[in-house]
Design a protein around this nucleic acid. Structure first.
Lengths: 143, 143
DNA sequence: TATTGTTATACTCTATAACTATA
DNA sequence: TATAGTTATAGAGTATAACAATA
């Protein structure tokens, strides 16, 4: 008989699963995982480098290169902030907004598909529990 | 009023959370994420490069460098397979087994801690649903 | 011919430390 | 002084393509 899988093991494996789907959808949209995460974080609003590095959990110096490459590809632009001339705001271009919109839609479909085998009641309960668990996580991915 | 978070958004955020804990515990054990994943995959049994690349979802050529660095650090060894002389088996050293054991224990504690705020009934249900969702995921992390 | 693994190469991602400009 | 951002540097991780050895 198969024992029940532990919570930790389940979380690690689910993460592995989601990561793979995330990367796969990203490839289809010609986005790396890091790029997709950054674009998602910028969907709601432009952010300065420091804020963005905080949301993504990266050093500011790491973010410089990430933004460089995304800017070079025409996905984002850097703009000065007149109220604090030290600040560099990062904003999605139309192309960037388009890319992240496609990514977001496709990823949503794929991830909801992961749950489709669960009975509706169980799925709803699972989703509600999820919401409680991630209440404090920054808005890495909006609804 | 706060709406309910969607399933996709919850999954992405939970993944972000777990990933961060995974990386943090790894750092404490002096293991990168990729190294920790590889060592976990080798906990149960030695694997050839091709099998290991399949479990981890990496190209064989990517794995070569990963194993190189881990071998250089004394975490794994490469051994020939007498039954098929093309095959290179990767095996944990005692140091590697020790490192992955510590990692596994600490990560288990930390991940179970993520669920501790849920009421016991909800937590059990959530864990059971997790088990169903990841039934097909390779043994990236054992119980 | 097919499979296993490595090498060569190139790029992305990430961190630490030192630096510049602005507050 | 403190904060925002960049540069310089180094290393890890990954992929594609070409290759060698074995089946």
């Amino acid at each position: 008989m198969k024992e029940t899988l532990g919570a930790a093991s389940g979380l690690v494996r689910l993460t592995f699963l989601v990561q793979n789907v995330y990367a796969e959808v990203g490839r289809g949209c010609d986005l790396t995982v890091a790029q997709a995460q950054m674009l998602c974080a910028l969907t709601e609003e432009s952010l300065g480098m420091a804020d963005l590095s905080g949301v993504l959990g990266l050093e500011r110096s790491s973010l410089t290169g990430l933004v460089d490459r995304a800017e070079h590809r025409g996905l984002v632009v850097r703009e000065g902030d007149p109220r604090d001339r030290r600040v560099v705001k990062v904003t999605l271009t139309p192309a960037g907004a388009d890319a992240v919109h496609k990514f977001h839609q496709q990823l949503t479909v794929r991830l909801e598909g992961l749950l489709e085998d669960l009975p509706a009641t169980e799925r709803d309960r699972f989703t509600r529990s999820l919401g409680r668990l991630v209440a404090d996580v920054p808005a890495i991915f909006a609804d």
